[in-house]
Each structure stands twice: as C-alpha cells, then as structure tokens.
Write a protein that binds this DNA or RNA. Structure first.
Lengths: 200, 200
DNA sequence: ACCTGAACACCGTTCAAGT
DNA sequence: ACCTGAACACCGTTCAAGT
C-alpha cells in the first residue's frame, strides 16, 4: 500500500497529540507507519518541512474572518489560539514552523492581519510589522499558557503561581489583545500623509 | 585543573558565537573543554540549565534603565535587542530559555517592564501581561531579524524580499515598540477604579 | 568532591540497491 | 516511482568506578 503525504501528516498529528513534540521524530513516525525512516524522505525534504505540514494541518480551522478591522484582528487571534490549544504542544510546533518560514497557513494569517492593519489606517509600509507584532503576541502568550496547562495537567500542582498568572487565561489573552488593538488604533495614519486619511 | 561553572559558560558562549546553536551540544562542549561529557553533569543538571546560564551571560549587558516609564520600556527593549544581536543565534537561545523558564536575567527584565507598565497606570493585575507582551515582541522581532541577517551573511543573497522587510531594522523595531507603548498608554487605568487615577 | 569510561537508548539524513 | 536496509555521524543522560 502506497504512502501518501496525507497519511504521513495524519500519523504525525496523532503522534503529537498522544506523546507531544519531543516524541514526534522521523524514526518513530516511520515505525508508526510501518515503513523505513528513509521512506519519509521521498515525500518530505526534511523534518522541518514535515513539521510545517503538521502546522498547516493544525491551522486548517483558522479560516477568514469578516467584519471591521478590530473584529477581524480579534477573531483571527482567538481562532488561532484555539487551534493551537487543541493539540499537544501545538503552540510550540506552530511557533517553530513560523520562525522557520515553513507554514503557509501562518503566512496566510499574516496576510489577513496585515490587511486589517492597513484598513485600520496604519501606514502600508508598517502594516505587516503591526501584523507580525500581533502574531508574536498570540504565539508567545499561547506557548506560555500551554506549557503551564500541560505542566499541571501532568499532576505538577504548581505552587499557586503568584495568584494572577493562572486566572482565566482567556480574559488575560483578551486584555493583551486589546492593548495591541489600541496601539494600532493610536497609530492609524500617525505618520501617513494627510491625503491618506480620507479612507477613514 | 578543576572545571568551574564560569569556564563552562565561557566555552559554551565561544562555541555559540563561532558555530551557532545547532553546534552547541554537550558532547562538543565537553570535547572543547577536554573533559568527558559526564563531567558537565556535575555542574549542570541538564542541557536546559546550561543554556539558561548562557542566556544570562548574554543578557548581562542589559542593566537597569532609568527615566519615565516610556524611556524605561524603550531603553530596556533596545538594550535587550542589542544584546541578542551580538551573539550568533542569541535571540533564538534566549527565546528558548525564556520559554523554558530558565533565564533569571529574563525574569529580572520582565520585572522591570512590569514596574514600568504599572507606572504607566496599567491595572496592577495586568501589568505583568503588558510586560510579557512587550517581551514577546522583542524576542519575536529579533529572532526574525537575526535569522534573515545570518541567512544572507551566509551568502544567500535573498531575492529582494518584498523590499520593506529588510530596510532599516532598527527603525522597524522602533515602530513596533511605539505601537506597544501607545497601546499601554491607551490602557492606563482604562479599567482601574477611579481612586487609582490620582497616581497620574 | 569531582571526574572518567562506557554504556543506554536514541536521533536526522543519505543512498545504493531493490521492486 | 517509491521504498528498503544499512550505514554515517552524531545526540543527551546515567552511573559504577576511580582519584
């Protein structure tokens, strides 16, 4: 029976959910698929590319969001966080793939956020940076949240962690998000020529 | 001759600067120090802890900054970025150590930024999140900047990269920073009781 | 107290050779 | 076209035993 890219990504995702990113190795994946390790290299150039494909699978549920620029930013970020949280080490894996430039889905999300920032009135030259800043936040926050989550799901029973850090992560996420959205709002054409202000 | 923690961190930093994070392995480090790999485990519990010590060494130059809260945030962030950029893969290494909770220096920087955010008038319950958001930005931005930097220093000669992404990284860094500072300013006691506003 | 030697249980990647 | 088998060149970590 022929091995297809889809099967490989399926098996990789299952491995990830069951044992985490540390156990998502090429050799283990090959064993799970009952093929030799070398077989994977017919379908993927290297491990990074395979992880990129897993990242894209994880992000499938993050579709396009409509509405005003604020709703589009908030909606995209919330969906992104939800997607990351629904797989073991999802945030870490996507974060690494994004940094390595291996996730098409993250590139797509970045494009959407860039468009939203531009709609908010951010200088087009800086709209992508505004979008990246938002992405850095979502990834950083969620990597952090997930590591705490998984740490005490593993029965670690952390020592009451300065009280606030673990209280309602969704509310905390929302706060940081508002901070960024307000920053973008404050920068709407702050340094664009006056002629561009008509779009508002 | 006895091996000291300092010698190990020195050698590790040299290895990092010369060959990058991928070649900073326990075995290679031991070889460089002319000891057996096991010797390192007398001084450090594991590789993560050693990397944390290297991260702290990299961040030594990021001291305390004075002035108003805006200057303190901007100053700390600029020094942090400079420190990261002055070692090969510095941003990646510190980013990983921060995520793993292994860098005391990053904890200290986070405390400083938290104090600055509190001074800005951010609800004390959310000041640390504001600080974390800033840290996520600096780390995310600099990891990105450094990977591009090192990529074409290695003679890759990237395909003119959408024109803007590579133009004056420091200016771009400053833009994103202002976005965050403005976001913090917009949030000054936005949801604190009126009684707290007297501090302004 | 501090380190060696040797082992344990793995890795990612390549590539001639097979079907 | 797609995969196997086997090798290459490594890893992090542990631990009895030595000094």
């Amino acid at each position: 029976m022929q091995l297809h890219k889809r099967d490989v990504v399926d098996a990789a995702t299952t491995l990830l959910d069951s044992y985490g990113i540390a156990d998502l190795t090429m050799r283990r994946l090959a064993r799970e698929l009952a093929v030799s390790p070398g077989a994977l290299y017919w379908h993927f150039a290297n491990k990074q590319e395979l992880l990129g494909a897993v990242a894209d699978r994880i992000l499938e549920s993050v579709g396009d969001v409509g509405g005003g620029w604020r709703d589009r930013v908030a909606g995209t970020c919330c969906r992104l966080r939800d997607a990351l949280l629904s797989h073991t080490d999802g945030a870490e894996l996507v974060s690494a793939s994004f940094a390595a430039g291996q996730s098409e889905a993250m590139a797509r999300i970045l494009t959407q956020l860039t468009a939203a920032a531009a709609d908010a009135g951010v200088d087009p030259r800086h709209a992508e940076l505004a979008a990246r800043t938002v992405v850095y936040y979502v990834l950083g926050f969620t990597v952090d949240e997930q590591s705490r989550l998984q740490w005490d799901a593993a029965g670690a029973e952390l020592p009451d962690d300065q009280s606030v850090l673990s209280e309602d992560p969704s509310a905390r996420f929302g706060f940081g998000l508002r901070l960024l959205v307000d920053g973008i709002a404050a920068h709407r054409d702050a340094q664009t020529p006056v002629s561009a202000k008509k779009f508002e």
